[in-house]
Design a protein around this nucleic acid. Structure first.
Length: 578
RNA sequence: GGACCAGUGGUGUAGCGGUUAACAUGCCUCCCUGUCACGGAGGAGAUCGCGAGUUCGAUUCUCGUCUGGUCCGCCA
């Protein structure tokens, strides 16, 4: 089709130019003997001026596809809201290329349609400039990845989508085999096994923009199929690797948004993140740190405080605005994180106030005042638990709650840090055994190896997460390449020799033949795009996302299939609850 | 698996134990030469998600159910 310019690129310098434009009718303004059309294409909108006495466009409606031939002219009164606002195209000819029914949603950034409607008509939703911008940012991120990693000797390798189900970890999406009835492929939760085998295969530096699949419940920032920037390297220690990755992050921010990130990035120990920020992915754009109160309450008479962890946060200048109802909200929030309750105190006229005072001695009160450096109108929120997880994460949630409520976060600011030195294992009460905090191939810290026998809970791993604005934007680890260490880890996890052979047989075998020290990480491309696009909804950065019940509102996937298809696969549907 | 919130013209919302179910936007017709979310006049368009219950009467109250959203569990 004939087309001379992108609509959104025309400027004052183009005045006098004969142009041929194509696009969608974004808006038609009929003033009687003059008609204006806002013509939209991917690049933006330009105003077309039509004289209805010469050109009949009575039939043209919103979202018609048209071709316009005309001349660029300067406007008498520019429209400052539009990049093309200083000019308009005076039409000589308008060709209706295709008509359009009335759309179920308004095609504009400030559409009023609910997300469900938008997803049902996603192809219309995608015409909105903000979504096109998001997908453009996503594209720029992947281009920045290709560029940087290629410059640093990485090679892109594709790994199988039809793989073997991996034990541990998330629930797999399964694909039945027609050739081998009763056997199933699994879609990869990540190319973890493949990329480590590529290191055994001597590729040294691998990457892939990899689609991953996890059959778990969804969230605002989680989709069942999502994309990782998947990376693995050989012969690098943790520092060398993180430094290499920092360059990648820098290039991504620069190319996708023109933002300069200062290197090196801060590195925070996992334990500090949890104890000080109440999160393993702390947002350090605001303060509100957790403070340890174990010492203050060391002689407490209150049973609830005779526990391992007593911590508090201080919110300045809100005590007088905090009602009983507000406190109840906080307690509800804390309960979600396994806390039984919260203790709150207010500072009024230099003195603590609150029903909890009856459990506090004079010394405790003054000790609390000085430890927390309390001032008038401060609100003190205290949590106590034998579980570090419950105490810290509960307060961490309250910390985030207040950051949002009090607007403590400046928009369009970026806070990047590494969380390093993660625990190797977590104890699963449910399974009554240790489970991997990361995965079973994570390399323990050398200095902790001797603890594998005596106390696995004290063993830390050479693992790291990149945290941006409180989001886990990626994570990884160095991997075990010593077979005796790997054997030891399996023992701690309680796997028998048969388990190991059955679950990881071919993988473990590969490590017999000269495995290089290796490690890597994966960035969540969707989350990275969310952060750089400034949205908190993962669906805003994915072209065709699924809703919270893992359904595509547009195609209605997943669907039922023909009887014959099931027969071919040797599959029978048994009764199930809807 | 669980908690909470929402479901009313095409779209987004308001409302209320008895209404002609309101508003905005979109749509249709007409008027308008400088709009840019144009303006003006008129019009069409809703069995108030579904089922049961309470009631003389339910869109409104109750219960159930379905759908959507946010979160907890889960996501090595």
């Amino acid at each position: 089709m004939e087309r001379s310019h992108y609509n959104g690129t025309l400027r004052l310098a183009d005045v006098g130019t004969k142009v041929t434009l194509v696009g969608w009718v974004s808006k038609r303004r009929n003033l009687g003997s003059i008609v204006f059309i806002d013509l939209r294409d991917r690049s933006g909108i330009v105003q077309v001026n039509v004289d209805p006495a010469k050109i009949n466009i009575d039939s043209v409606r919103n979202e018609y596809v048209i071709q316009v031939k005309g001349t660029v002219e300067a406007k008498e009164v520019p429209n400052k809201n539009l990049p093309t606002g200083e000019i308009e195209v005076v039409a000589d000819e308008v060709v209706v290329v295709n008509s359009a029914d009335t759309t179920p949603l308004i095609i504009a950034d400030d559409t009023d349609a609910l997300e469900d409607t938008r997803l049902k008509y996603r192809y219309l939703d995608l015409r909105r400039p903000c979504l096109q911008r998001n997908l453009m940012i996503r594209h720029k991120i992947t281009q920045a990845v290709h560029e940087y990693l290629d410059n640093n000797d990485f090679i892109e390798v594709e790994t199988p989508i039809l793989t073997l189900s991996t034990p541990e970890g998330a629930r797999d999406y399964l694909v039945p085999s027609r050739v081998h009835k009763g056997h199933f492929y699994a879609l990869p939760q990540s190319p973890q096994i493949s990329k480590q085998l590529l290191m055994v295969g001597g590729l040294e530096r691998y990457y892939q923009i990899a689609r991953c699949f996890r059959d778990e419940d969804l969230r605002a920032d989680r989709q069942p199929d999502f994309t990782q920037i998947d990376i693995e390297t050989s012969f690098l220690d943790q520092d060398q690797f993180l430094t290499l990755m920092e360059g990648l992050i820098q290039n991504i921010f620069r190319k996708a948004r023109g933002i300069e990130i200062e290197l090196p990035l801060r590195r925070m120990e996992y334990n500090d993140a949890v104890e000080i920020y109440g999160s393993d992915k702390p947002d350090t754009r605001f303060d509100l740190k957790l403070q340890d109160l174990k010492e203050v309450f060391k002689n407490t008479t209150f049973e609830g405080f005779k526990v391992q962890y007593v911590k508090g946060i201080v919110v300045n200048d809100v005590a007088d605005k905090t009602s009983r109802k507000n406190i109840d909200e906080l307690v509800d929030l804390a309960k979600k994180f396994g806390l039984k309750g919260l203790t709150t105190l207010k500072v009024v006229e230099g003195k603590l106030e609150g029903s909890f005072l009856k459990f506090m001695s004079e010394e405790e009160q003054s000790s609390l005042m000085s430890t927390l450096n309390l001032k008038n109108n401060d609100l003190v929120i205290i949590a106590a638990s034998d579980s570090q997880h419950h105490c810290c994460f509960g307060l961490g949630a309250i910390r985030s709650f207040y950051a949002k409520k009090l607007n403590l976060i400046k928009p369009d600011t970026f806070d990047l840090l590494w969380v390093v030195h993660w625990p190797m294992f977590e104890y699963s009460e449910e399974q009554q055994r240790y489970v991997s905090a990361h995965h079973p191939f994570t390399r323990p810290c050398d200095e902790d190896l001797h603890l594998l026998d005596e106390d696995p809970s004290k063993v830390y791993a050479q693992a790291y997460d990149i945290v941006i604005n409180g989001y886990e934007a990626g994570g990884g680890s160095l991997r075990i390449y010593d077979r005796s260490v790997q054997q030891k880890i399996f023992e701690v996890l309680g796997f028998s020799q048969e388990d190991i052979q059955r679950k990881f047989g071919f993988f473990i075998d590969a490590f017999k033949y000269g495995t290089p020290p290796h490690g890597g990480m994966a960035f969540g491309l969707d989350r990275l795009t969310m952060i750089l696009a400034g949205t908190d909804n993962i669906r805003d950065v994915i072209a065709f996302p699924k809703n919270l019940s893992a359904v595509c509102p547009m195609s209605q996937a997943p669907g039922v299939v023909d009887e014959q298809q099931l027969k071919d696969l040797g599959i029978a549907i048994t009764e199930f609850e809807k």
